[in-house]
Amino acid sequence: MAGRGRGRGGSGLSLTTEQIQALGVTRGDNAPPTLVPPPLFPKLEKKPLPLICDAATDYMLIVKDQFIEYLHESPAFVKVKTETDGVERYSDKYKMLALDAKQNKLLDCVWVNMPTELRPQAKRPRTVPRKRKLDDPEEIAKRLQTLEKKETLETDEAIDGKKKELNNENVDEEEELEDEHEQEYELDDGTDYANNYFDNGEDYEEEDDNLDDGPVY
């Protein structure tokens, strides 16, 4: 409505003078301007009806309190680390004992239904290294053959030395796998985008207080 200027309220939210008049508000009806802010807790104009408290309600209240108490005692209630005010008290010892007893308890869940990362003694999920194509010896052999064919098409002089090398590799690929990897990357796409650098952000700026997590590399 803003763009249309005033006086053209129409279907808009604000009403024109005529419309307000049509609604029955006349010029004189305007309330005097208020000078003080409204009270924080305005008086209730109507008193609410009294609540019905019969035996059933009483029973439900008791049951509810019991349920909440159970939850507070159970490990489902996640404790807040309480800050001490520096004053040692006699009762501290007992409080700590009670707290420790609770802390060692583990919430009894159906672990199968939970994601791995929530299970106790769960390893921090590491990214699984993607299976490389060249891990399979057959694949290597195939690859080498295609390369070989390619090279035979090229000029003879340059290849001679290399061909021997490749043939050697074909025979004992186990030994020179490492070497092969490097070569393959150069030939494949020549960049290191192929490497798996995925980081899910798990380890970013995080204090490692979970001792169960196993070694951190």
Partner: peptide, 27 residues
């Protein structure tokens, strides 16, 4: 992290939350 994990366990146990795998299927 351990408190967050505990809280999530509670929420999941009482069926107050649900989870779905992210596209990478790990977390």
């Amino acid at each position: 992290r351990i408190k967050v994990v505990e809280s999530l366990r509670t929420l999941l146990k009482y069926d107050l939350a649900m989870f779905e795998p992210t596209p990478n299927e790990v977390i």
